[in-house]
Design a binder for these strands. Structure first.
Ligand SMILES: [Zn+2]
Ligand SMILES: [Zn+2]
Ligand SMILES: [Zn+2]
Ligand SMILES: [Zn+2]
Lengths: 158, 158
DNA sequence: CTTGACCTTAGATTTAACTCTAAGGTTTAT
DNA sequence: ATAAACCTTAGAGTTAAATCTAAGGTCAAG
């Protein structure tokens, strides 16, 4: 039997989080003490660990609710159902990764185009790219700061 | 001169979004009509496009606020400052990608371990993995549903 | 017997970026 | 002149997953 703070510490979450999970139907303590304190059994702790493992794998709390209901009623579900959920999630994650990769490439291109030197940003390729719609070209690794500045301070100058 | 709806349509955002940007100091129309309608100049439209481009690259609105203030005052900033922002963002994005890749691998492993067949999930490897802390092994592509079921319905059975 | 750590509740706040509502004023077309 | 389409404002609602606050009850130690 754990009190809320004990289980929280054991599983490295806040007591607030456990109350939140209870309010949202993910995990209720099996008992209460006479004075009303939540008392969690080892089974409750197992269920919490299930939740946390699913969360670590990227499921949202409402998806976890669904997984829990399947887990408690396995015989009425098929492997196909469970695998389906995982595969949908996998597709979501892959989509998100693709989107972020798009950001990454764009940012890398911007970064590569800027000398990063200490001189004025008046001709900074990054700002220019954001001002106009021009895609930064890959080769443009040292941009022009004008005759003098360019020669003296652009770090990446060929 | 565009009215709010016109600029919104032109840039494929909602009028609400433009009011939101105004409230948050990203973009104010240069004028108002006699009756109080917002009137955006071409310069305002340019600024909006700057915002949208930066957003497309993954900057948050508060980062964009910062970029805009740099852009309006370029001479007081160095390339290093601008590139620094981009590089920080790039690092964030890369971190996020790494995190999602972690999810992806875990999910893929779960998915691979489940036969996805129509029989009861009572011995589903996915649920078992979530119940216990055991990492699913890579080779475990067809799990056991018990003598009979396994033979009749597991799709991936070797 | 009192201090401090812990527990209870309901409800408010946080973050980001919108999105919507209500109640009304303006423009344009028919 | 009247309807449709547009505009104004202030402020509330949305989403997810907590996190925090206030006001108070409980428990073990010294
Ligand atoms: Zn430079
Ligand atoms: Zn630069
Ligand atoms: Zn199976
Ligand atoms: Zn399965």
């Amino acid at each position: 039997m754990f009190r809320i703070g004990e289980l929280a510490k054991e599983c490295e979450v806040k007591a607030d989080t456990l109350r939140f999970y209870e309010k949202h139907g993910l995990l209720s303590p099996s008992m209460r003490s006479e004075s009303g304190y939540r008392l969690y059994t080892e089974q409750d702790a197992e269920r919490l660990r299930f939740i946390l493992r699913a969360k670590a794998v990227g499921f949202t709390l409402s998806e976890i609710t669904e997984l829990l209901s399947i887990d408690l009623d396995k015989s009425n579900w098929a492997c196909a159902d469970v695998k389906g959920m995982v595969d949908i999630k996998l597709a979501n994650v892959e989509e998100k990764i693709a989107e972020l990769n798009h950001f990454r490439v764009s940012l890398q291109r911007l970064s590569d185009a800027c000398c990063g030197g200490p001189e004025s940003a008046e001709h900074c390729s990054i700002l220019e790219a954001l001002e106009s719609n021009v895609e930064v070209k890959c080769e443009n690794h040292s941009h022009d700061h004008g005759e003098t500045e360019y020669k003296t301070s652009c770090k990446l100058k060929g």
